[in-house]
Design a binder for these strands. Structure first.
Length: 131
DNA sequence: CGCGTGACTCTAC
DNA sequence: AGTAGAGCCACGC
């Protein structure tokens, strides 16, 4: 697996923002793209999370020599990211959506049977964020 | 290098 | 309130 510096930067930004979503709150792929000043890249945000386990190793390997912030795959709250409609995105080849629903419920977020979360109540959509 | 794919979104019926 | 259709773009073949 090989990544350009530009995409590494993008992935890093995604993870840095996801890490700041408060407990019990959710945001959208599109909003993360917006915070990264790339509002057209919502799909790519989903890709960053889909390939989280592989990409994070690449990023952290680089960080060993650049002494930046280490991203811990075990604590990164990827389950707090949903589609803009408030629905947990269905996966093609995994049951990750059910794990995501369980993780949210563990944080007392109400998830309907059809995997919809009330954005008005749980949404976290800051205009800007440091990372 | 080109092409299909998808953890997206918005706009129009 | 659904739901096609189109735009989007890095990843993986």
């Amino acid at each position: 697996m090989k990544l350009t510096d530009e995409s590494k930067s993008f992935h890093y930004g995604v993870y840095a923002i996801v890490a700041q979503i408060p407990y019990g709150k959710v945001t959208s792929y599109g909003h993360i793209a917006y915070l990264l000043n790339k509002p057209q890249n919502s799909r790519q945000v989903g890709s960053s999370l889909k390939h989280l386990s592989g990409i994070i190793n690449i990023l952290n390997a680089d960080l060993d020599t650049e002494s930046e912030i280490y991203i811990d795959i075990n604590t990164l709250p990827w389950w707090r990211v949903l589609s803009s409609s408030g629905k947990i995105s269905p996966r093609e080849n995994s049951n990750g959506q059910y794990i995501q629903a369980d993780r949210l419920r563990e944080e007392d977020v109400i998830v309907s049977d059809s995997h919809i979360v009330d954005i008005e109540e749980y949404g976290w959509f800051p205009d800007e964020v440091d990372f």
